[in-house]
Design a protein around this nucleic acid. Structure first.
Lengths: 203, 203
DNA sequence: TAGATTGTTAATCGATTAACAATC
DNA sequence: TAGATTGTTAATCGATTAACAATC
């Protein structure tokens, strides 16, 4: 939860920096997100003393610190698995690149696509997944495969040593307990939304 | 958090039903997800008494109950805002439809796209957003617009009375406090992943 | 020095877990 | 009846908030 909030603060600091704001207090940050100022201070103090008493936090400095903590100060090599309609769009999507996630290799089953290149990014067969992931130092995978392929592909990624998955397939991945792998199932986010609408009165 | 877990249980029950399993205990469910069986029982009991003492839960019955609670027993009319590369792929993506999210209208700025149809789904100008959303009973929007368009589009959606947004734009939406609107910013999920990799030793 | 705001300790709140009577 | 497992109460744990000394 703290990490989620750090991500939110970072976005806000980027905006403040653009607006030319030099310093910001925990109170000001808290108000923007309906949080308690003590919580903001605690979140920030957890990773070091970034603030200045009587002043607050220097926007640029704090932003840089948070980006470093979140791993947004570097580029991540990403594998895109599944190069159909969705995969192709995600490849061209600027959103990932913008945050430092560079698609270093594409994987697909379709022999017609394999061994070709898109904007100088190579497309491999899923059979080559393990080798290429290691060779290219890829730690994150974006999955855009059909639901039925989701679990087999996830298993492949696990044995290739991938460490994080953003899963667009409408299936919940089952990852062995002993594997240190963080994954986000997009479909769960959607289901959460529908609950909110189905039960407008509660929470 | 309970809702997130209900979503996970539902997916598991679907699988169990396919496998022909008739009943399941809180203990069995808990083991699958590294949860405590008391927590599973509490999650389920919160919405009614679905279990049978000495037996457990009937898979089919519980699945149906959870789907109802999550609003997955009906179809939701969804607006797709932004029909570029990503928007177009999301439109053809089976994942949303599969879970009952039907794209009822598309919105885009590009005059070349407006007033056309894709697979009998009409494309409107963003100016028509308010009218069409009301006319079609749309409550959920999927945003696939450029980062700089994200906030203005979100504001439009808010005034059109939309109640949930799945945001693919790499920007964190700012929603007025008095508006009851639930939104998921996909980019925050990504940033959470990178943190996990940047700090492998902690938490 | 006076005012502001941090970092942190202690108090509060909420969520998770253990334990068990109820009951199939 | 004996065994299993629920729903729920009480105990525990962790996260949020209030309060305040430290300090710019």
């Amino acid at each position: 939860m703290t990490i989620r909030r750090l991500s939110v603060y970072t976005r806000c600091l980027l905006q403040l920096e653009e607006d030319g704001v030099k310093t910001v207090s925990s109170q000001e940050l808290a108000e923007r997100f309906n949080l308690n100022s003590a919580q903001v201070r605690k979140d920030l103090a957890y990773f070091g003393e970034f603030g200045v008493r009587g002043i607050g936090y220097y926007v640029s400095g704090l932003k840089a610190e948070l980006q470093r903590i979140l791993g947004l100060d570097r580029e991540w090599a990403v594998a895109l698995v599944g190069f159909g309609n969705l995969g192709s769009a995600l490849f061209h999507y600027k959103g990932f690149t913008r945050q430092g996630f560079r698609i270093a290799a594409i994987f697909d089953e379709d022999p017609a696509k394999v061994a070709r290149e898109v904007e100088s990014t190579p497309i491999f067969s899923s059979r080559e997944l393990g080798r290429e992931i290691k060779a290219r130092g890829i730690q994150i995978a974006i999955m855009a495969v059909p639901a039925e392929a989701a679990q087999p592909v996830a298993d492949l990624l696990v044995s290739a040593g991938i460490r994080a998955i953003l899963n667009f397939a409408p299936a919940r991945l089952k990852i062995p307990k002993d594997v240190r792998l963080k994954h986000v199932d997009l479909s769960i986010e959607l289901e959460t939304l529908s609950f909110y609408l189905a039960k407008p009165s509660s929470r």
